[in-house]
Design a binder for these strands. Structure first.
Lengths: 156, 156
DNA sequence: ACAAATGTAACCACCGAAGTTACAGATCGG
DNA sequence: CCGATCTGTAACTTCGGTGGTTACATTTGT
């Protein structure tokens, strides 16, 4: 299937914003540096996230994006719907043959099947919050606070 | 998002084959007529369904496709995996910045999130069989057996 | 005023999918 | 054996969506 990577980008951006929550606005160039893409891609993403009420942005010097609420309150299904409009499934591109008993009824049946599966998908995402993502990341990256022996690199 | 319509086509084709189960092989041109597409599209689909063991095909005159088992035994997640390889989610197209604590860990966290959601999606599909699709279609299309007053058309 | 940001338009390159044509090969019925 | 039928597949075109890029008007803080 392979859809867009906007959801991955969105979770990434929100995670950065969550970590930088105290530092005020984060500019699109910084976020682009972390995601490894172009600042315009980030701004287009932030526009969607802003419309969903997940972030606020401020223009001008010293501006940037800020997370709207606490990470515990941001569930991933909200993020998903904010950046991936429409369904994960596609119907017939052309109307099927209405003179065939299957062609005449299949679309409505599929609509219902698609809706059920889509709901299951989003419900699974709803069980995770941005805070869960942050703690999963903290768990997999041994915290490495101050000096351990491992050759740690500075964060960007 | 909007992925491919192969899953819709596949369910449609299998439904037709289920209804024509007694009549021997159904040729790709007939199926294309019901789906309203090109026979080659159908044949490419049938190749995938054959690899998944859902149908058999036979070459030559009088050949065509046949459903392998009873519709009650064909769950929709099997169909989905047969024709939609890969995940419904896409990762970062370029590796994120490993010097950023988020960039360094986000991909593995997302892998796990994606896998969970994908499983939920397929589990929802697994609860439906091809037989369910057929009966849902029969329920929505009032059977119209023999002559009612409604101006029914002949099926193709 | 100047610098630093966003918001957006315009454009390009790429990729996957549907659709189409063409044809080699298998298979059945005579 | 012959011809009709049907699959399997390659090759190509078209189209839409997406990430990426450049450019620029606008806003805003110092």
């Amino acid at each position: 299937m392979a859809s867009s990577c906007r959801f991955a980008f969105a979770v990434h951006v929100l995670a950065v914003l969550a970590l930088k929550r105290e530092d005020g606005g984060v500019c699109s160039e910084f976020l682009a540096g972390s995601v490894n893409t172009n600042p315009v891609i980030i701004r287009r993403l932030l526009t969607r996230l802003r419309h969903a009420g997940l972030v606020t942005t401020q223009k001008g010097a010293g501006g940037g994006a800020t997370l709207c609420g606490p990470p515990e309150k941001i569930a991933l299904d909200t993020v998903y719907r904010a950046v991936e409009p429409g369904s994960a499934f596609a119907q017939h591109p052309h109307q099927p043959n209405q003179r065939c008993p299957v062609g005449a009824g299949i679309e409505r049946v599929l609509d219902e099947v698609f809706a059920t599966a889509q709901t299951a998908l989003e419900t699974a995402l709803a069980h995770r919050t941005l805070a869960d993502v942050l703690s999963a990341m903290a768990a997999e990256t041994p915290v490495r606070r101050k000096a351990t022996r491992a050759p740690a690199r500075k964060a960007g």
